[in-house]
């Protein structure tokens, strides 16, 4: 049952240390769990709860609020089609229907082979490039039905892996804060007036 692997546990600890309070790492850790397993498993939530010192119910409470976290496995490719206003005006709904028909599923569902999940989503901040969609959160702009078909053909054969990692992997570049140059967390109750502020104040009224 999917708790964090040894490597991911190390990474989880590292993420937690970036925040003044461990609970702030909750959402990043849920992303890490989803990256590992493709969805957020119950055991992963328990593991996160142990790591940041809250109850598993609190983890679920936060997790269930956010659209991106899936509590059950979804397709390898999550196809999110925007049908909000700017896209609606130039064919977003038609694009969604085309993709639903092509894949034989309604939005919110996954194909039987576990390859695709389709979602009808809200604005994805690509409004001037409408109609648009995302596959695993990678953008495709001004998508015609033909372009959608070609994209699906590619995905069926995993031909775009360098561009679109399988579902779960959010960002392939991680922030690294080197210990040597780290300024350190500003913890409530512990931090004093920053030195540069104190110095500047002293310069004005010595």
């Amino acid at each position: 049952m999917p708790r964090f692997t040894a490597d991911n546990t190390i990474l989880a600890h590292e993420i937690i240390t970036r925040y003044p309070r461990p609970k702030s790492a909750l959402i990043p850790l849920l992303h890490l769990a989803q990256e590992q397993d493709g969805y957020v498993a119950d055991d992963a939530m328990e593991h996160i709860a142990e790591l940041i010192g809250v109850t598993a119910a609190e983890v679920l409470g936060t997790c269930s609020f956010y659209e991106m976290f899936k509590l059950a496995p979804v397709g390898e490719y999550l196809v999110n089609v925007c049908t909000n206003i700017s896209c609606l005006l130039v064919g977003g709904e038609e694009l969604l229907h085309h993709i639903e028909t092509r894949l034989g599923i309604k939005s919110g569902h996954t194909t039987e082979d576990g390859k695709f999940t389709v979602e009808d989503v809200e604005c994805i901040a690509a409004c001037t490039e409408a109609p648009c969609l995302q596959v695993n959160y990678r953008y495709f702009s001004r998508v015609t039905p033909e372009a959608a078909d070609a994209l699906i053909d590619d995905l069926l054969h995993d031909r775009r892996l360098d561009e679109i990692p399988k579902h779960g992997v959010l960002a392939r570049t991680r922030q690294q804060i080197p210990a040597a140059t780290r300024a350190g967390n500003a913890v409530p109750g512990e931090a004093e007036e920053p030195v540069w502020i104190r110095r500047a104040r002293a310069e004005v009224s010595p």
Binding site: R18, Y66, F69, T181, R182
Partner: peptide
């Protein structure tokens, strides 16, 4: 960070700061 624009004693001054990238999750 590597070039000294973020972190401890930025550009040799007494100004220090960590900038943490945080991920949203759709809401």
């Amino acid at each position: 960070y590597a070039a000294g624009y973020i972190g401890k004693n930025i550009l040799g001054t007494d100004f220090s700061l960590d900038v943490v990238l945080h991920w949203g999750a759709g809401a």
